[in-house]
Amino acid sequence: MSAARVMVVDDHPVVRDGVALLLRGDPSLVVVGAAESGRTALERAAGLRPDLVLLDLRLPDMLAPEVVAGLRDVCPAARVVVFTAHGDHHGIQAALDAGAHGCLVKDAAATDLVAALRAVLRGERVVDSRMLPAGEATASALERSGLTRREYEVLRLAAQGRTNPEIAEFTGLTRNTVKTYLQSALHKLGARNRVEAIGKASEAGLL
């Protein structure tokens, strides 16, 4: 399989260079071009034939939804991922409504850019959980995990470093009940101990 062609649209050279640097380590993705504004992006996109466009939510000359719609027009096969440093829910929703396939947060503290872009190329819609209305992401992850509210509550308190007796005091449950909830949470998460359970719950987007 040949590498997917990636185009980066951002007015900051450091972001364009940084993305290129980051993707260089991955043979399945190759940066074929960049643009510093919405207008130049639309001019260059047809010639570059990108499979994926990483698009800054805030460009100096055009609004992101206009650029998304324009890109969908000039290269309908390309997937568009909005890249933003801000928790701008309206801007993101507007970009997604205009046909963007994903939205990632630029701070990259918790974002694995390569994995996220690959997922989008596989046809998945990737939206950073921090961009969803508070609670919505957790609620759906919680449903998938099969954890009950109580098990989840106990696990969250354990993640704060509280001991079982402290969790018992905080929740008003008996120590044995706390232990039972934790055991049950461990079992559902497939973890051998509480630290591993916290790690797995975090990986699943539960914490």
Binding site: G18, V19, L21, A85
Partner: peptide, 26 residues
């Protein structure tokens, strides 16, 4: 590369201490 990008992004976005702390811990 990953660290360089992260630092660049942090410098670009409003890099207030409460944003920088989780990045540093991570």
């Amino acid at each position: 590369a990953s660290r360089a990008l992260r630092e660049a992004l942090l410098a670009l976005s409003d890099s207030s201490p409460e944003r920088a702390l989780p990045v540093e811990l991570a």
